[in-house]
Simulated assay, not measured.
Amino acid sequence: MDWKTFQSLLSGVNKYSTAFGRIWLSIVFVFRVMVYVVAAERVWGDEQKDFDCNTKQPGCANVCYDYFFPISHIRLWALQLIFVTCPSFMVVMHVAYRDERERKYRIKHGEESKLYNNTGKKHGGLWWTYLISLFVKTAIEVSFLYILHFIYDSFYLPRLVKCEVSPCPNLVDCYIGHPTEKKVFTYFMVGASALCIVLNICEIIYLISKRVARCANKLKHRHRRSASPPTVAENRNGYDDNDHNNLKMEMTKLALPKDRPPSFMSSCKPPYRPARPTLRGEMMASAPNLSSEVLDN
């Protein structure tokens, strides 16, 4: 296995992870991958060669070793590391899918247009992908710990095992090479795996609680807006409600004509006509010295 390529692939996950995810990635690299490559492979490299039995019966040592070690620790841990890191690539592939959609959208609508504010931000489908990857990683870790516990009886490695499997002639004593050293590395790898499970659970709780808090804040904000409407109108111009109403009234006044048409009552009223002077008034106006008695006669 090319561990450098494996490490370079996993380093891309660090950009899209939370704080718990970064700690998990550091533990996987330092306490699991590095320990596996540097020390664990060498400790288990000669396990079958150092498995000695007190008999020279051909095939007895091989059959007894296969009976007590059906799956080697080192190969089981290699499978565990591969399977447990594969769900993290789901997030990287989802981000790559978003980047491709963003590129096609900009080609179609222009360079200034955006389909996502940030392709690596955990919102929408990417949030679900990240959460599902955490559940899958936790399930894989628990499954491999159960397999190791079921096969090797609580992760314990005895120094002496007794075998009576055919073709062994009778009950044969077999000795495991470097049992204490193998036991220490077994407990160390199991502890690192348990720590990764705890970090995955903490990250799941963190993501769900953060999402619930965001939804609760949105609902609370909507409830406040519906219960007590704001005094300032939320429009793009930024005017108050009173200013907006005053501006509307002024525009209505400007829209009306200055000379309004007459009403119905004023149109039905007859026009004003001055009264004509009588004959008496004309005579008094022409001869003011005449008395009223003469005018009456």
Rank of each mutant, 00 (worst) to 15 (best):
M1T: 12
M1I: 12
W3E: 10
K4Q: 15
T5S: 15
L10D: 05
G12Y: 02
N14V: 08
K15P: 00
A19S: 14
F20Q: 11
F20K: 05
G21A: 08
W24G: 05
L25D: 06
F29T: 04
V30P: 01
F31C: 05
F31Q: 10
V33D: 07
Y36A: 00
Y36G: 03
Y36M: 05
A39I: 05
A40R: 00
E41R: 14
R42L: 07
V43D: 04
V43L: 09
D46C: 09
D46M: 14
Q48M: 11
K49Q: 15
F51T: 03
N54Q: 13
K56G: 15
A61I: 04
V63W: 00
C64E: 00
I71R: 08
H73C: 00
H73M: 04
I74S: 09
L76D: 04
L79H: 13
V84D: 11
T85L: 14
C86K: 13
M90V: 02
M90N: 07
A96S: 06
R98D: 02
E100R: 11
R101D: 14
E102L: 06
I107D: 14
E112Q: 08
L115H: 04
L115P: 00
N117T: 10
N118M: 06
N118V: 01
T119V: 14
K122Y: 03
G124W: 09
L126E: 03
Y130G: 02
Y130V: 01
Y130Q: 03
V136E: 04
A139T: 01
I140D: 00
V142A: 12
L145M: 15
L145Y: 01
Y146K: 11
I147D: 00
D153E: 14
D153N: 13
F155D: 02
F155C: 04
Y156K: 06
L157F: 10
V161R: 01
L171Y: 04
Y175H: 13
P179E: 07
K182Q: 03
V184N: 01
M189S: 02
V190G: 01
G191M: 09
A192H: 00
A194F: 05
A194D: 02
L199V: 01
N200A: 11
E203G: 03
I204E: 02
Y206T: 09
L207K: 11
K210D: 13
K210V: 06
V212K: 08
N217P: 00
K218E: 09
H223V: 09
R224I: 07
R225N: 09
S226G: 06
T231E: 06
V232F: 04
N237A: 15
D241H: 06
N242L: 14
D243N: 10
H244A: 15
L247F: 12
A255G: 07
A255L: 11
P262R: 08
F264N: 07
S266R: 05
P270D: 04
Y272E: 06
L279F: 11
L279G: 06
G281H: 10
E282C: 05
M283A: 11
A285I: 00
P288A: 07
L290S: 03
S292C: 11
E293H: 03
N297D: 11
